[in-house]
Measured scan of single mutants.
Amino acid sequence: RKESAFKSMLKQAAPPIELDAVWEDIRERFVKEPAFEDITLESERKRIFKDFMHVLEHEC
């Protein structure tokens, strides 16, 4: 699924995404990734990013 691929892309980011990361600041790192391009709505990208950050916070 496209959403899973997007989350995997975020999870495998190098360097890892920090807990205090803001979408607008890290977005540039992913613009050339196929998983990024597959999610065409920016609002959807932000939503998935927020979900990812929520999970990340609870893993720590």
Rank of each mutant, 00 (worst) to 15 (best):
R47C: 04
I48Y: 09
R29Q: 12
E37R: 13
A14Q: 15
R27I: 01
P34I: 12
K7S: 09
K7Q: 11
E59A: 07
H58T: 14
P16S: 10
S8P: 01
L10R: 01
F36T: 01
F49A: 00
D38I: 06
S4N: 12
S4Q: 15
S43H: 04
F49W: 07
A14R: 10
R45A: 00
L41D: 14
V31E: 14
L10H: 01
W23E: 01
D20T: 06
A5E: 15
E57Y: 11
L19K: 15
K46L: 06
P34F: 06
D20C: 08
E33H: 07
W23F: 01
L56I: 05
I17C: 02
A35M: 05
K46E: 12
V55G: 12
E33F: 13
C60F: 09
P15E: 07
A35Y: 03
D51P: 00
M9D: 00
I17S: 00
F36P: 00
Q12D: 07
C60P: 15
D51T: 10
T40Y: 13
K7E: 06
I17G: 00
K50N: 12
E59G: 12
E3K: 04
E57D: 14
V31Y: 07
V55A: 12
E33N: 08
F6L: 02
L10T: 00
L19E: 14
R27E: 04
Q12T: 12
V31F: 12
R27H: 02
I39L: 10
A13V: 06
S43C: 06
L19Q: 14
I48Q: 05
H58P: 15
W23L: 00
D38V: 11
K11R: 12
E33M: 07
L10D: 02
C60M: 07
W23D: 00
V22S: 08
E28P: 11
V31C: 09
I39A: 01
L56T: 14
K2Q: 09
K50C: 14
R27W: 01
M53N: 05
E44K: 03
F30N: 04
E44W: 06
P15L: 04
A5M: 15
L56M: 13
I39Q: 01
K2N: 02
P15M: 05
K32G: 14
K50S: 14
H54Q: 08
E3F: 02
H58W: 09
K50V: 10
R27S: 03
E59N: 14
P15Q: 06
F30D: 00
A5K: 15
R45F: 00
L10S: 00
F6P: 00
C60Y: 11
K50D: 12
W23Y: 05
E24S: 08
K7V: 10
F6W: 01
A13L: 03
D20F: 09
I17W: 02
K7H: 06
A14C: 07
D20P: 06
A5C: 15
Q12R: 06
I17L: 13
K32V: 07
F30T: 01
S43T: 07
K7D: 06
F36E: 01
E24A: 07
T40G: 11
P16E: 07
K46Q: 08
F30V: 03
K2E: 11
M9G: 01
E33A: 05
R27N: 04
K11V: 09
M53G: 03
P16G: 06
I48V: 07
E28W: 13
Q12A: 10
K32F: 09
E33G: 01
L19G: 13
F36D: 00
I26V: 04
E57C: 06
A13S: 08
Q12E: 07
E37S: 11
K50I: 11
C60H: 10
E24T: 07
T40V: 15
K11H: 10
F36N: 03
E44H: 04
W23S: 01
R29F: 04
V22W: 05
E37L: 14
Q12V: 07
D25W: 03
D38G: 13
V22P: 05
E33C: 09
E28N: 15
A21H: 05
T40L: 11
H58I: 09
H58L: 11
S43L: 05
E28F: 06
